[in-house]
């Protein structure tokens, strides 16, 4: 289990990375935290000809508030996010997500940008980013553009990120008033990828009528899946247990078409989605009332 040879670059600026990407494109892989890429290379399932290590680009490591938004550099490590008070203040859903990601030894290396760009359907951060309506800054040698999370995740390990582009920054809007959140997942063991997970934002007005619901599921499709029917079951309605049940039922039967694998059948995933969404909505609702 040793990786195949590759050409290695460790540039110190984004511009150098973009120039290398322009040159090598499809042959190159970006090495961020490496916590998914390196195991895949050790199994020789990935054999990139060129590896561009972006761990030495200092200005990709930051967490700051900008115009009321959370801005995070793509190389920010999971542990930094987990411990950041800026994150917990502006995007507490992200803080709640972090401990579910693997183990501290992995979170010490893993990065937010790497996780988003990798787009593993079982991974936590893509779902949470989608729930938070984050935007991603994609830079290439010729331009930089911002892409909504909802436009970013395309299919299994497929994203809007082009071969010559680098994900450099993540912007997360702060939560509006009376908006609650919850992250829940069920994994076989502590730190495993989830059998099913949900990331939820729920806003209610003073009458507890749902004014916003953004419900995202992981491990139930080819990427993070937005529960549109479940949202419809809630929007403009009272955030009652009955309506949450209806939303959960709609999510399980209409929004997702989960795969079966050795850890869980499609039916079990539907069942768990229902169970988790109910719990998550309840938690989010309680928080929304106080927020």
């Amino acid at each position: 289990m040793k990786p195949a040879p590759f050409k290695y670059f460790a540039p110190s600026t984004v511009d150098e990375v973009l120039a290398l990407l322009a040159e090598h494109g499809f042959d190159a892989k970006i090495l961020a935290g490496g916590q998914s890429l390196i195991p895949t290379m050790n199994f020789r399932l990935a054999q990139p000809a060129v590896l561009i290590d972006i761990n030495r680009i200092e200005n990709l490591f930051f967490v700051r508030e900008e115009a009321g938004e959370l801005r995070v550099g793509a190389m920010t490590r999971h542990r930094t996010l987990e411990r950041s008070s800026t994150v917990s203040r502006l995007a507490p859903l992200l803080t709640e997500t972090m401990p579910n990601i693997a183990h501290p030894q992995i979170r010490n290396r893993g990065t937010i940008g790497g996780s988003i760009a990798h787009a593993d359907p079982a991974a936590e951060l893509p779902a949470t980013m989608l729930a938070l309506r984050a935007r991603f800054k994609l830079a290439s040698a010729s331009e930089a553009r911002w892409v909504e999370a909802s436009d970013f995740f395309i299919d299994l390990f497929m994203t809007e990120l082009q071969p010559e582009e680098l994900l450099t920054e993540i912007a997360v809007p702060a939560l509006p008033k009376r908006t609650g959140f919850a992250f829940k997942e069920i994994a076989r063991r502590h730190g495993d990828y989830a059998l099913v997970g949900v990331a939820v934002l729920l806003a209610v007005d003073e009458e507890n009528i749902c004014t916003d619901a953004n419900l995202v599921f992981m491990s139930v499709g080819n990427g993070p899946v937005v529960g549109e029917q479940a949202q419809q079951a809630l929007l403009g309605k009272k955030a009652s247990a009955e309506n949450m049940d209806l939303a959960a039922a709609a999510a399980a039967s209409e929004d997702i078409d989960p795969p079966s694998d050795m850890h869980a059948s499609s039916d079990f995933r539907r069942h768990l989605t229902k169970v988790l969404l109910k719990e998550a909505l309840q938690t989010a609702f309680e928080r929304a009332q106080k927020a």
């Binding site: 076989r188 063991r189 502590h190 495993d192 990828y193 050795m262 850890h263």
Partner: peptide, 28 residues
């Protein structure tokens, strides 16, 4: 409750890694 060698009908072992062959940890 955790470990299972999962084979397909062609005799391929589908979970030949410690990601998918689940050894119990300190929380289990």
């Amino acid at each position: 409750f955790y470990e299972e060698l999962v084979y397909d009908e062609g005799g391929q072992l589908l979970n030949a890694s410690l990601m998918d062959y689940l050894l119990p940890t300190a929380t289990d």
